[in-house]
Simulated scan of single mutants.
Amino acid sequence: MSKTDPGNYFEDFKLGQVIVHATPRTITAGDVALYTALYGPRFSLFSSDVFAADCGLAGAPVDPLIAFHVVFGKTVPDISLNAVANLGYAEGRFLASVYPGDTLTARSEVIGLKENSNGKTGVVYVRTTGANQRGVAVLSYVRWVMVRRRNPGAVVEGQVTPQLAGAVTAQHLTPPPGLNFAKYDFALAGAPHAYEDYAVGEKIDHVDGMVVEEAEAQMATRLWQNTAKVHFNQFERSKDPSGRRLVYGGVVISTAKALSFNGLQNAGLILAINGGRHVGPYFAGGTVFAWSQVLDKADLSASGGASVGALRLRLVATVDRPCADFPDKDEAGAYAPGVILDFDYWAAVPKRG
Score class of each variant (00 low, 15 high):
residue 1 M to T: 06
residue 4 T to F: 09
residue 6 P to G: 06
residue 10 F to L: 04
residue 16 G to K: 02
residue 20 V to N: 02
residue 26 T to G: 02
residue 29 A to D: 15
residue 44 S to G: 05
residue 45 L to A: 06
residue 51 F to K: 02
residue 54 D to M: 11
residue 55 C to I: 04
residue 58 A to D: 15
residue 58 A to R: 04
residue 59 G to V: 06
residue 62 V to H: 04
residue 65 L to K: 01
residue 70 V to E: 13
residue 71 V to P: 03
residue 71 V to Y: 02
residue 75 T to P: 05
residue 78 D to E: 15
residue 81 L to I: 02
residue 89 Y to M: 15
residue 94 F to D: 04
residue 100 P to R: 15
residue 105 T to I: 15
residue 110 V to E: 02
residue 114 K to V: 08
residue 116 N to L: 14
residue 117 S to Y: 01
residue 118 N to V: 07
residue 121 T to Q: 13
residue 126 V to T: 14
residue 126 V to P: 01
residue 135 G to R: 03
residue 135 G to V: 06
residue 146 M to V: 08
residue 146 M to T: 10
residue 147 V to A: 13
residue 147 V to N: 11
residue 147 V to W: 12
residue 149 R to L: 07
residue 150 R to F: 12
residue 155 V to W: 02
residue 171 Q to P: 04
residue 175 P to H: 08
residue 178 G to V: 10
residue 188 L to F: 08
residue 191 A to E: 12
residue 195 Y to L: 14
residue 200 V to T: 15
residue 200 V to D: 13
residue 202 E to D: 13
residue 205 D to K: 00
residue 208 D to Y: 05
residue 212 V to N: 07
residue 213 E to G: 13
residue 214 E to K: 09
residue 228 A to W: 02
residue 231 H to R: 05
residue 238 S to M: 15
residue 240 D to Y: 08
residue 246 L to S: 09
residue 250 G to K: 04
residue 252 V to A: 11
residue 255 T to N: 01
residue 256 A to G: 09
residue 260 S to K: 00
residue 266 N to Y: 07
residue 267 A to P: 04
residue 269 L to G: 01
residue 273 I to G: 03
residue 276 G to I: 03
residue 276 G to C: 14
residue 281 P to E: 07
residue 288 V to S: 00
residue 302 A to L: 12
residue 302 A to I: 05
residue 305 G to W: 10
residue 306 A to N: 12
residue 307 S to V: 01
residue 311 L to V: 10
residue 313 L to P: 06
residue 314 R to G: 11
residue 319 V to K: 13
residue 324 A to I: 11
residue 326 F to K: 00
residue 334 A to G: 04
residue 339 V to S: 13
residue 347 A to Q: 01
